[in-house]
Structures are given as structure tokens and as C-alpha cells.
């Protein structure tokens, strides 16, 4: 059972992702300004992407760098020489030498979804500003409780 200190030492990335996630979630719930909520939403989404990418990191297990002269855990692109003879017999490639490509693909999707959601949210924020003249949620609710001019 790893002690909390060991967790903090080895899995520092995962602890930081939880901290960032909570900063984003807290901002989304408690911030009154609409754009601040959106910044919190973006921090929230980026923290999840950090978690996914941290899954894919690979330090090559027992193969220390330089053990057989080739670097370890690098970008999942096959070098020219190795790639060529992988066509005929693919088992020559040792997956431990590369980072895991699957989380990278998933996170391309998540980044793009995050920007799309942010764009739609900013469009809605502009329309809310056009209607109520402010971005503060409590001022908008005050206008709603004693409606002077908005149509019902």
C-alpha cells in the first residue's frame, strides 16, 4: 500500500491533475461572472486531457536509456531505419520504447470538443450581454425578478 508521500513523489502528475480539476470545478460553480465560468470550464477540460496524456507516458520499464543505445519513451513516430524493416516483420519494434499513441489520438478529439463548446458558450454569453447588459449572474437574476423591459 503506497504511503501518501510515495504517491506524491511518483504520481505527482496525477495529483496535479486532480488539483487543476478541482480549481476548474470550483470556478464553474462559484464564479459569478459568465466568462470566468468559461475559463473554469476550459481549465476543467484541460485537466482531463492532462490525465489522459499522463496515462500514455512510458519510461521504457527496465530498458534504461542508452542500454542499447537508442532513446526510450519517445514520440510515437517510428524512426526511418527501424520503420522500413517493420514492414516485413513487425515484431522487431519494441513498444516499450515509444509513448502510447492511443491517448494522444483521444486527446486530439477532446481538445477540439473543448474549443467547440467554448465557442458556443461565448456566443451565448454575447447574446446574454445583448439582452441584459451585464455579464454578472446576480445582476441578471436581479433583472429577472423585477422585469422592467424584457419580454415574457
Amino acid at each position: 500500500m503506497p504511503t501518501p508521500f510515495q504517491i506524491l513523489l511518483h504520481n505527482f502528475n496525477y495529483v496535479c491533475y486532480v488539483v487543476l480539476l478541482m480549481i476548474g470545478l470550483h470556478a464553474m460553480i462559484t464564479k459569478r461572472n459568465l466568462i470566468k465560468k468559461l475559463i473554469g470550464m476550459s481549465v476543467f477540460s484541460t485537466a482531463i486531457i492532462l490525465f489522459y496524456v499522463s496515462i500514455g507516458v512510458n519510461n521504457g520499464g527496465d530498458m534504461l536509456a542508452g542500454h542499447d543505445g537508442r532513446p526510450v519513451g519517445n514520440i510515437p513516430v517510428l524512426e526511418h531505419g527501424i520503420g522500413h524493416d517493420a514492414i516485413t516483420h513487425p515484431e522487431t519494434i519494441d513498444p516499450r520504447r515509444y509513448a502510447n499513441p492511443l491517448p494522444h489520438v483521444l486527446m486530439l478529439t477532446a481538445i477540439v470538443v473543448g474549443v467547440a463548446t467554448l465557442g458556443v458558450a461565448l456566443a451565448i454569453t454575447q447574446r446574454v450581454f445583448q439582452d441584459y447588459g451585464t455579464l454578472e449572474e446576480d445582476e441578471i437574476l436581479a433583472q429577472l425578478n423585477n422585469p422592467q423591459e424584457n419580454d415574457d
Binding site: 511518483h10 502528475n13 496515462i55 519510461n59 521504457g60 519494434i93 516499450r96 499513441p101 492511443l102
Partner: peptide, 20 residues
């Protein structure tokens, strides 16, 4: 552990197939 090469995600069949 962070960066473990034998974790289910990094050491799995799927990842090995993709790279190879």
C-alpha cells in the same frame, strides 16, 4: 506508477499492435 511500461494501458495488446 507514472510512466510504468507494464501498466495495462501502455503494455496492452492494443498499444503493441498499433506501434508494430
Amino acid at each position: 506508477l507514472f510512466g510504468a511500461a507494464d501498466s495495462p494501458a501502455n503494455g496492452g495488446v492494443v498499444t503493441a499492435y498499433y506501434l508494430q
